[in-house]
Every structure is written in C-alpha cells, then in structure tokens.
C-alpha cells in the first residue's frame, strides 16, 4: 500500500490523504449522511487500489476519483431507491440562503446531475471544458447545468461560462 503510483510521484497513502476530503465531501453531497459517505469513500479507494490502468499524472487520478465517487454514490442511491429531491415551487420562491449551512442544504437538495458540476466548477475550480471531458458531457450541457443550478441556489454566483 506504500508503493509509489506510476506517473504521479505519490504513494497510495499520499494520494489517499490528499483526496479523501474531496471524495468524502462529494459523497456527502449525494448521500447526505456520514455513514453512507464513508462507505462510498472506502469503496472508491478500494477501487483505486485495485485499479490496473496507468494514470497520466496526479490530476488524472483526481479526475478518476471524482467520476468514480459519483458513480458509486449513484449506484448506492439506486439500490436504496431513494427519490431525488427536486426543488419545488415554494422553495424556489423562498429567500436566498444567508448562512453557509443554509447554502449547503440547498446544494444537497439539488438534483444529482447539478451537484457534481457545481462542486467541480465552484469548489475545485475546474474549467467548463475540463468538467465536460470528465463527465462525458458537452461544454454546452455543463453550462446549462451551471445556469440551472445557479437559479436553484438563488445566490449571486459569478457567471463566466465563456472562461474555459
């Protein structure tokens, strides 16, 4: 487990330490409870451990983890047959979130497909074209999701879709 991962210059432990918070946060945004999020994070790193593919660099590992944690969480949600919470009309008309916690609650309630793009764009700082490549979407689809997510969150987030 201490071996160095090819092309990344990092050991598995170092990759784990660096990316666990990101994997856990992303899992939490889907699953909304600590235990399931831990399970998802563990599953992701187990898959990474067994992964035979060669990663190009550390960024490639990170992108792989992001896609994998999204897929793991989607599968877990399907298995549990949870219903995705859609923001309803009444919530749309409520006042904008004032605290970080209120904003987080709104993020957690976003439909699955918006959560990842919001996280990648505004938290991780990936460009639209990078997110598109990572999630197998067109750049236009990513922009559309960002626009809709912004509207649902009702906060004054900067729009700069052309900056790729």
């Amino acid at each position: 487990m201490e071996r160095e991962w090819p092309h990344t210059g990092m050991s598995f432990r170092a990759l784990y330490e660096e990316h666990l918070p990101m994997v856990y946060r992303l899992a939490y945004s889907y699953l909304r409870n600590p235990q399931d999020s831990e399970d998802a994070a563990q599953e992701c790193f187990l898959r990474l451990m067994k992964q035979k593919r060669e990663f190009r660099d550390a960024g490639h590992v990170k992108a792989w983890l992001i896609v994998t944690v999204s897929n793991v969480c989607k599968d877990m949600l399907r298995r549990k047959q949870r219903q995705e919470l859609e923001l309803d009309e009444a919530r749309d008309q409520a006042s904008p979130p004032e605290t970080d916690r209120e904003l987080l609650e709104l993020i957690l309630q976003l439909p699955e497909k918006y959560k990842t793009v919001i996280y990648l764009y505004y938290y991780e700082g990936y460009a639209v074209r990078e997110i598109a490549a990572m999630l197998s979407l067109t750049a236009e689809a990513v922009k559309t999701r960002l626009r809709r997510a912004r509207a649902m969150l009702r906060v004054d987030l900067e729009e700069n879709d052309n900056e790729e």
């Binding site: 904003l103 938290y123 900067e158």
Partner: peptide
C-alpha cells in the same frame, strides 16, 4: 472558477 461561498458551504 472558485467561489468563496460555495467553498465555505462545502
């Protein structure tokens, strides 16, 4: 593009 409010929320 990072955003402070989103970062704080996460």
């Amino acid at each position: 593009m990072k955003n402070e409010r989103i970062i704080a929320a996460y």
